[in-house]
Structure formats: C-alpha cells, structure tokens
Design a protein around this nucleic acid. Structure first.
Lengths: 281, 281
DNA sequence: CACAATTACGAGGGTCGTAAAAATG
DNA sequence: CATTTTTACGACCCTCGTAATTGTG
C-alpha cells in the first residue's frame, strides 16, 4: 500500500508541475523524488506519469490519483486535528461560571485534586453555560440557580452576599444595612468582569454613573486611593481581606444575594467524585 | 504525519488486543511492533495506550484513533480500487453489440489498430447498450438502428442479410427466396448467441421447434451432419465460407435484413479516428 | 547551454530481529 | 513459570545525496 509520504509528494508534484520545484519544497533532491514517484507507480502497478526525456506530465490515471490523494491526506489531517482536540479535552477541565467569585475556590481546588489536568475557566451568560455543559464545552458550570435537567447532576455550592464598600466619610457609612436605591445616582467604581452582577447593578441602580474598570489591579488601587463607593461581597472579602480605609455595609435587597449551584453531566459525576465531595464539604 | 503502515499496525493491535498476536499477523517481531506504536504516539504527540508492565490497553484517545484509522485506510483502499478500475478502463476498449456478426470484423480491426489495448466485447439488449454507452461501460456499441442522441457520434457500419441454410434434399431447397412463414412449424437448428435475431425468429416462426445450441462448434458440426434447416447470413458465410452440403436461400421478409450502426461518445471520436475511418471504409 | 529527468553508486539512518530484563497472574 | 511488554544492541535494507548521463528548447 502506498504511504502517506508518497501521496504528499505526489500532490507536491501536481502543485508545481515538475519534479525539481517539488523536490525543492519537499527538501529532497530531485533524483530522490523521481525514484519515489517511480516506487509509487510500481507499488500501484500503474503509470501515473507520461514521461518524455526531460519532461514529466500526469497521465489520466495520475490526475485521478491526485484527486484521491487529496482526499486521503485531507482525511488524515482531519484525523490528526480531531484527535488533538479530543486529547486536549481529555486533559483539561473547563469550568464556566455566571460570576468570577465561585471560580476563586473551585479552580485551585480542581488543580490540587487533579494535578495532571489543565484547568480552564471563564464567566459567561447563563444560557451559554447550559448549552456549553450539554455540548461538553464545559465539564462544570456554576449558575445562580439549580439546574434540573435530565442527565445533569447539580449540587448547591456556596452563597455570595453583595455589600457596599464605602469610604469612612461617606454619609451612609454608619448604616447597618442599605438598599441599592440608597446609593442610586451616586458615582461608583465598578469592576467590569463580574458576570451576572453587572446586569443587576444596572437594573437596581439605573441612575448611578459607574466608572468601569477592566483591570483587577487598577480597580483595587482606585478603591484604596479614592473616596468613591464600590461593591464587594463576602467572597471578595474572604479572598482579598477587608481593606483598611473602607466601611463594609451589607446590601439588604433580595437581589444582592446569590446561591451558587455547581453542575456536571451525570456521566462525569463518578470521574470527579473527589471534587463533588469537596463541593458538598 | 503518521504513515499508513503504522495505522494498519494500530488496527491490527486493536483487532487482537495485544502486541504479540498482532505482531504475528503482521509478520513482525513483537519488539518491532512495540517500538512502532511508540513512534506513532510520539509522532502524534499523544498517548494512545495505557501501559502496565505486561499489558497494554487503548486509552480513550487511542480508541478514537482506531476509528479514524479505519476511515483513512478505508479511503486508501477505495482509492486503490477505483484507480485500478480506471486504469483498466483506460487500457481496454469495450464494444457492445446487438448481434455477434458485427463483432467478427470490429474486434480484430480494433486489435490491429490499437495493439496496446485490450478489446472486450459482448452482445446485449439494445437498451442495455445505449445505457452502457452513456455510462462509459462501452466505448462503442453496434445497434440495428441509428442512434440520434446529443453527445453521441453514429455512423452506418454494415448490413446483415439472413438466409436459410437448407439440406439439398429439402422440399424448398430450389427456391430463389423464402419467407419465415414458409418454414414455420419445421424443426430447426438454432445457435443461441445471436443477439436480437433470437426474438425475431420467435416472433416470425412461432410454431417452429428450435433445437438450441450453446456452442459454436457443436452447432456447425450439427449443421454439417444433419438434414435440419438452419439460419445463416451474408456475414456468417463471409466468415466461415459456404458449406458444401447446404443450399443457401435468402429470406425475403423485411425483418431478415438488418443495417448496423456503430456509435461512440463524441468526446471519444477523435481518439478513435483511425477506427472510424475504417468503419466508413 | 541551461534545464529537466533518469541512472549509478556510495553513505547514512532507520527499522528490524535477537537477546535480555522486568513484571504480572 | 508462562506470558507480555520494554530496553539494548548489532545488522541490514532502504532511501538519500552527489555525480554523471541523456535529451530538449
């Protein structure tokens, strides 16, 4: 049976129309390529070329062979691509979340439980998460609601409670609790990558002018250095600690509280038993 | 890129489940196969097997690789088969005819004009001939009528006149001409492979009992040795000569005369110019 | 005479087989 | 202890490159 290598050479000859140019592209001497094509012909027991003394053209059979060779090599490339993709998926755990906070614990935990795996994570819209879980784009998703679908295993993970982070001199800084509307209209600092919270802020505080920050570092520095109110949460505080010059006031609205649920396909539940044990700690 | 050879080995390992049996079938030592599979893995940069010290099983990626390898090798086999078929068609001229007589001249003529080609011929029904010409099953067909279709080149070839071959003692042997009906009801010798003539005999002489002969030699011997009437024609006489002990009487019916037309695809007309020149001699 | 293809021939690399080692049931 | 896989090592075959040959535009 002909080898892939020879078919590639055949295609290269077809591409250039002569052996010398083809040999150049193949990093091969011209005699070597000439012999290789002769071997291919004798292997197939048919003449692929019509040879004159200093010219070589494809025979009808040869032209057909080129077409088929393209198909075979295309299939081989396809095989490699799909295999590589599958291989990567076998060695990475992809987590999608509706908000970044749950990932702060989940990603390191997955890393330590499955040290040979690559952990990839991103925050997306709820519907994208659900679709991605079904399509195996994600092995796990975190949503602010339980997922009740056949074939999906779901468990409550943790809660996040939103709070205002106010400068000590702020008029309301001595409150025990506040509502969104209490600060509506003021100018606030807002970190952009906060998932579904962004929509809630916009809805509950429509008159507020948000100074949007795309970088985590810039945002935290501005919180320290400015006297502008901002948001934080129990999870953010746990992660970064309580800032010195800030007063933390819980937000009393129902929408300021989220209960996160983690889901995966049932077929993967057993494989990630250790992780689920931790989720339900 | 992996070579076909390695994929075949992979399939063989999948078939047997272990290296030793597979190596046996491949006429290879087991260490050689082991290394070959290792090369395949490093070529693909992925692990195809899960290895314990004295056991080797497919990894999920490996199982997928087997599936894809089957496809690639299948395509390669398909390529070889189709190429071989095309190659053969490139080196053979297939002629289909409604009756054997036209082939007696056409086949030797094609042989001498195109000595490097294989000539294959057969006699079939008219509709099969027309379809076969369209499908490139035949390069030439001979029909008892002109073919007027787009893309088909057609020319009159020759005529065949049917005759009775009677023993000298036959009651009608002195006739200058006879009709089918004149011998209807008698027992006659008939060679079976006469194409469309068979149907005509059956129609025009429904009461005749035909002694059907499948072999040319047997038929001619019986004609010589028996006193049974039979058919012959101008072309048959030209081919085999006039038999000694027979009286030849032309058949006067219109149906006893055929004008043969030879056709080929217009795209092949130029390629067979020499042959067409001869047809229109 | 430059260019393209083939043939001849020697060199090098890759793959093979044999032998040995290691591990398992 | 038989079976299976892997590693080590030497040998051989195959393909490569260089050089020479032939033929063409």
């Amino acid at each position: 049976m002909p080898e892939i290598n020879q078919l590639q050479q055949l295609l290269c000859v077809a591409k250039h129309g002569n052996l010398s140019k083809a040999a150049e592209e193949l990093h091969l001497s011209q005699p070597a390529l000439s012999r290789s094509m002769q071997r291919l012909e004798s292997e197939l027991q048919m003449e692929l070329f019509e040879r004159s003394k200093n010219k070589i053209t494809f025979s009808p059979t040869g032209e057909l062979a080129v077409e088929y060779a393209k198909k075979v090599i295309g299939q081989m490339n396809d095989m490699i691509l799909r295999l590589r993709s599958f291989e990567r998926s076998q060695h990475t755990i992809a987590v999608g979340s509706c908000a970044p906070a749950p990932l702060w614990d989940i990603v390191p935990q997955l890393s330590s439980l499955y040290p040979e795996m690559t952990i990839s994570s991103e925050t997306k819209e709820d519907d994208i998460l659900l679709q991605g879980l079904a399509d195996q784009v994600y092995q796990f998703i975190v949503t602010p609601f339980p997922v009740n679908e056949p074939g999906i295993y779901c468990a409550r993970y943790t809660d996040e409670q939103l709070m205002f982070s106010l400068p000590p001199g702020h008029a309301l800084s001595s409150s025990k609790g506040l509502h969104f509307k209490d600060l509506n209209g003021e100018t606030m600092l807002l970190f952009s990558q906060i998932g579904f919270w962004y929509k809630i802020h916009k809805e509950k505080m429509p008159s507020t002018h948000f100074l949007l920050q795309n970088e985590q570092f810039t945002f935290t520095e501005l919180v320290k250095a400015s006297a502008l109110p901002a948001f934080t949460s129990n999870l953010a505080l746990k992660k970064a600690g309580t800032p010195d010059n800030r007063v933390i006031v819980p937000i009393l609205d129902e929408e300021a509280h989220a209960t996160y649920y983690c889901s995966c396909k049932i077929e993967n539940q057993k494989r990630f038993a250790l992780f689920w044990k931790w989720v339900k700690k």
